[in-house]
Design a binder for these strands. Structure first.
Length: 787
DNA sequence: ACGTAGCCTG
DNA sequence: CAGGCTACGT
């Protein structure tokens, strides 16, 4: 290329990579270099790049220094963060004590003087001035400047208030007590409703024509996607078609696809399953009936209750209720969608009551209501567990284990069943069940509560089918399959794969609580495990995680482990394909660049997506599909990004073992990570500049905690469903990155077109080992149901 | 020639 | 997030 071209290109694009020697990256990946334990290298990096950065170990001195600095400069008055903790704690305790009246503010103000001069108003306007997140400045009160307090703060409850209680303190009033119990009641009721609805939501059982009690749009139920028929049950077919016809159609659609050598086998297998399914359906219908009866009961009881109540005092109370409803929908309930369900329940009830009557009706019966709720809860528990048992029995013939685990927990804890349709509340941060994971580091134990909740919300999805199909098909699969290229993927893992870009001495075993127990996982092997364990199964993927890679796995693998692995590969792929369906992303499935077989694959995929449910994997795909990245792979990749920003292609191959690698796949994966990095660095730059704008003068004032805005942004991007607990290590890396950017910008290095390269160089050394669990092909697939 | 990183754009 | 592009390394 002529020089002038080059020049123009350079100037035009401000290429950053120009002049960036590859060697810096390869160097970084050099085992010798990477050998440094993460912490060492990190600090080294810090020292190298940021002269004045002190290690974040001395909080006290940091605070002191900050205080001193504050005292010396007025312009720093905007930096309230040292007091954030105190304030928020105070606020919290005040709210707890006296219902959160304004006194809380005064108190905090008084106290805060000991910490710093917090001027909320300023902080707010300041921190949000050039940001696009208006929400960060909602707080009418002692605005804890969002960025300052969160981005630079330690894990404190501050952001809890910050992000969630904005209007709450002011809204609190003498109604509070009532309201609380009110909310409680509603929550309970909503849960009950939800259980009922959830159970009666089986797409196979359409509401009887005259049954207005159900809003069967199905839209609100993500779990739908796992019902084969729900996928088929497009609006058109929903009309008056009988269940039988419905089923027939389904079969017809599926049959034409069976064109392979072992079609027959699978065919018969399918017949069996159809049979099974039919029976199950019947059972389900029965249960539906029962449930509906239950529902009736509920309404009757409830109606009588409310009627009584109406008689006594509707007037004033109604007014109050309405207000409270408003509040609820705005503040307190948002997270788990109770409000929605609340409305749903209204709709349901509408067959008895005029709509206009409903709001007040549902409002109150604090004393009685509680009782009612309790009673209902018990009844429902019984009923539901019975129902579940029945289903389990139905399923249990060849493969009992699977379902039990999934469902066993569901009926047990009513509080968790409410998550069935809207599991991950939008507001997990700073207030949701997940809270702020106030343990930023300590407990490697996952937040059990949230985990189980998530488990529940995946309850539907986890329906054993995959396991079923897996075990079944893998038994059936004919070894005449071509030797696909999948085999090479079964890379030896143990030793020192030259591809392991960090052949380093183990960085401190990163905890990855959420993806949990690799040991457990490993021990599961291929044998259909019992599902009965308390861990967030959805996050572990399906039981066939015991991937031949793992050393421990081998003893579990049957003698013909090779065939097995091959089969499981394809099966896993199918699993992923199945899920890929309800994602709107098409990825490269329709990319023009694909090879022919990839193209046809896309077709198959879409077919599969439509026709296949978790329990019914098209036999067609079982032998031919080994490639294609699904949205679940994407999610997995994103989660992996928490550990590694610069994965090698070998590594990718290892961790995406269920994908048939070719150039396209590899590049796509690489491209993904490239995109991830891009986003990551953009955020870093953005927040670094923001900090500078806010008057931060030293990089060591910057820290990234879990409640930091920055972290939230990143987490939203890579872990949208938030069902993964981001490793502490990532926070450290993020913090280092942020400081790098900060320092570079402060130093004016950003004038240099390639100023980022130095940062990249630092950051690429900070990769840590990706947990084994991620080698499970489906480690993150379940997340796909939650975003 | 190929693979990869990064930038830019849509 | 994918494509297109350039630069660079092997």
């Amino acid at each position: 290329m002529p020089d002038h071209d080059l020049l123009s290109a350079q100037t035009k694009r401000r290429r950053v990579d120009i002049g960036v020697k590859r060697s810096i990256y390869s160097h970084a990946r050099d085992p010798a270099d990477a050998m440094n334990p993460p912490h060492a290298s990190e600090h080294e990096a810090e020292r190298a790049m940021v002269g004045h950065v002190t290690n974040g170990d001395s909080d006290k001195s940091n605070v002191l220094r900050k205080l001193l600095k504050r005292a010396n400069s007025y312009e720093d008055a905007l930096m309230p963060f040292p007091g954030a903790t105190i304030i928020s704690q105070l606020l919290k305790s005040n709210m707890a004590k006296n219902g959160g009246s304004d006194s809380g503010f005064q108190g905090s103000g008084a106290l805060s003087s000991g910490g710093s001069e917090i001027q909320g108003e300023d902080g707010c306007s300041n921190s949000s001035r050039d940001r696009d997140s208006p929400s960060s400045c909602l707080s009418p009160g002692p605005a804890l400047p969002p960025v300052s307090s969160s981005a630079f703060g330690r894990p404190t409850p501050a952001s809890l208030l910050n992000s969630h209680a904005p209007s709450q303190p002011l809204a609190l009033s003498s109604f509070d007590l009532d309201r609380l119990s009110d909310e409680h009641l509603r929550a309970k009721r909503a849960r009950v409703e939800n259980i009922i609805r959830g159970m009666s939501h089986s797409p196979l059982v359409r509401p009887s024509p005259g049954d207005p009690s159900r809003d069967d749009s199905g839209a609100e139920h993500r779990g739908d996607s796992h019902h084969s028929s729900s996928l088929l049950g497009s609006p058109g077919s929903r009309g008056g078609v009988s269940v039988e016809v419905y089923r027939e159609n389904k079969r017809k659609q599926r049959l034409p696809q069976q064109q392979h050598s072992f079609t027959q086998l699978v065919c018969s297998r399918q017949e069996q399953r159809q049979e099974e399914r039919r029976q199950l359906r019947l059972q389900l219908e029965d249960m539906q009936k029962q449930l509906r009866q239950l529902q009736e009961k509920f309404y009757q009881i409830y109606d009588s209750e409310t009627e009584e109540d109406d008689d006594t005092g509707e007037g004033a109370e109604r007014g109050a209720d309405r207000e409270e409803d408003g509040n609820i929908s705005e503040d307190s309930i948002r997270s788990d969608g109770l409000e929605d369900r609340h409305r749903e329940s209204h709709r349901d009830r509408s067959r008895h009551d005029d709509l206009s009557e409903l709001d007040p009706g549902l409002g109150e019966v604090p004393g009685r209501g509680r009782h009612l709720a309790e009673t209902l809860k018990q009844e429902l528990n019984c009923a539901v567990s019975q129902v579940v048992d029945t289903v389990v029995k139905g399923f249990s013939s060849p493969k009992q284990s699977a379902l039990q685990g999934c469902h066993s927990s569901t009926p047990a804890d009513p509080s968790s069943s409410n998550s069935s349709s809207s599991c991950p509340p939008p507001s997990r941060f700073g207030g949701g069940p997940l809270g702020l994971s106030l343990n930023s580091d300590s407990s490697p134990t996952p937040n059990f509560h949230s985990s189980t909740q998530r488990l529940h919300c995946f309850g539907d999805v986890l329906v054993p089918s995959p396991l079923d199909s897996f075990s079944g098909l893998s038994r059936l699969t004919v070894p005449t399959n071509d030797q696909t290229e999948a085999l090479p993927l079964v890379v030896r893992k143990s030793g020192g794969p030259e591809g392991n870009e960090h052949g380093l001495p183990p960085p401190p075993p990163p905890h990855h609580p959420s993806l949990h127990p690799s040991p457990l996982t490993a021990s599961l092997g291929f044998s259909p495990p019992s599902f009965r364990h308390p861990f967030p199964l959805p996050l572990m993927g399906y039981p066939f995680q015991g991937y031949p890679h793992g050393p421990k796995d081998h003893h579990r693998v049957s003698p013909d482990s090779l065939d097995m692995s091959r089969e499981t590969l394809s099966l896993r792929t199918k699993m992923n394909l199945g899920l890929s369906h309800h994602q709107h992303h098409q990825h490269r499935q329709s990319s023009p660049h694909q090879h022919p077989d990839a193209l046809s694959l896309s077709l198959i995929k879409s077919e599969c997506g439509d026709l296949q449910d978790m329990s019914d994997i098209s036999p067609y795909s079982s032998s031919t599909i080994q490639e294609g990245l699904s949205p679940n792979h994407l999610k997995k990749a994103k989660l992996m990004f928490f550990y590694t920003r610069y994965p090698s292609s070998n590594m990718l191959k290892m961790f995406f073992g269920d994908v048939k690698f070719n150039r396209c796949i590899t590049s796509q994966l690489i491209k993904w990570f490239s995109n991830f990095r891009e986003f990551y660095y953009i955020q870093m730059e953005k927040f670094a500049r923001q900090a500078i704008n806010e008057g931060v003068t030293s990089a060591d004032e910057l820290s990234v905690s879990r409640d930091a805005e920055l972290f939230r942004a990143l987490n939203m991007h890579y872990n949208k469903a938030n069902d993964f607990e981001v490793p502490e290590r990532f926070l450290e890396v993020a913090q280092v990155t942020l400081r790098e950017f900060f320092n570079a910008i402060v130093a004016g290095k950003d004038a240099d077109p390639s100023w980022k390269k130095a940062i990249y160089k630092v950051i690429c050394k900070l990769d840590s080992e990706v947990p084994e669990v991620f080698k499970s092909p489906t480690a993150s697939r379940n997340c796909s149901t939650t975003d």
